[in-house]
Design a protein around this nucleic acid. Sequence first.
DNA 1: CAGATATATGAAGCAACCTTCACATTCTGA
DNA 2: TCAGAATGTGAAGGTTGCTTCATATATCTG
Lengths: 209, 209
Amino acid sequence: MVPEMTDLNPRKAPVQRRSAATVEALHTAAIQVLVREGLARCTTTRVAERAGASVGSLYQYYPNRDALLSAVLEEHLTRVADAVAGACIAARGCPIGEMAGTLVRALLSAKLADREESRALYSVAGERGGPMLVRAAHDRMIADVACLLKTAPDRRVRQPEVVASVLLNALFGPITSVLKDQTPARLEAHLEAELIRVASSYLRAAPTG
Amino acid sequence: MVPEMTDLNPRKAPVQRRSAATVEALHTAAIQVLVREGLARCTTTRVAERAGASVGSLYQYYPNRDALLSAVLEEHLTRVADAVAGACIAARGCPIGEMAGTLVRALLSAKLADREESRALYSVAGERGGPMLVRAAHDRMIADVACLLKTAPDRRVRQPEVVASVLLNALFGPITSVLKDQTPARLEAHLEAELIRVASSYLRAAPTG
DNA sequence: CAGATATATGAAGCAACCTTCACATTCTGA
DNA sequence: TCAGAATGTGAAGGTTGCTTCATATATCTG
């Protein structure tokens, strides 16, 4: 298992408006190609072509293919983590059942806002650099939710980090499944209600102390 | 989005003992390479080399790379679904809290038995043919669990398929997270207990009728 | 044992892909 | 306006991977 040092950081930031547009176009093109063709066929040439740019331009801003994909993934993860952070601020001090609802709704709207994008990025999350980014986003969300749980007036949850982690991942499971179309269509209508049930029943069952 | 018909079925089955060993070696080699190198570098040549066979042998049994990976994935999914089926038979007629425990333990032991293998296959599950196989395995597990829920003496769960689906995916979420090392190590010690809490609290909260 | 069948081999053809680079075009600031 | 900086271009080099096939070895069967 050789580390295989490849630089995943952007090469340089756009300074003029023109290049900002190019970078933006590359991002959305990467997602589109990912959705339509899959990770294996998401090549630099195809992304550039779809973005209406040339491969050369792509390499002006990203040192390699993986750097581009990492950037796109990171942006998505940040959006989701921001949504969770927002919910954690909004629900601060609320009874624990309300926290559950707020959190679930925030997660759902962040993840389902652009289903194609969410779905496409699962494959990226498993490759070079992806796991690191996912891990970081998870840690951030866990910290936020744990902090939120401490403010519950009706429940003093023990080990808030453990509970936050299990809770978040228990919610991500069904969401992921729906995004990947691995779930009978009937479930989707019930998704929000059931997730809230999962969250609030688990939180109420969590050990206090 | 072109269908891109490539045959994912095995080319022919081994008949002599020698070739059965080769196929077996190819399977385990595929998993090892997947773990050590990642999906992108899991090439036919590397798999064959690690298996102590030649590429030619590989292509004698699988028409292409994806067929090999699909076969490995399918075997894993079948093992997990079998474990769930077993648990569903074992817990038939038990009180709903006991069902939760049995199911969780079965899932955990199936998924954590060979962590490396489970982890490696996530990437395969997202590529050519993977989603189909995962979908099929999920459907089977949902049917089994839904059937189990109907036998609960203390709870007549409404819409057992929906509940089964949410329940299973809510359990897979944290398991997946642990497998991918996306979770603080401290969680792992609590995993089983917390998952049982998730399952039984959700089942008890499910609408009855 | 001999023919038939099953299995194994790995070099080579072919097809993509990643990445670079020398050059063209556009923009900015003075 | 003009020089210098920023940006854009895409053909070509070099690498890698997938897959086939002619050939060789092992196993089976009668």
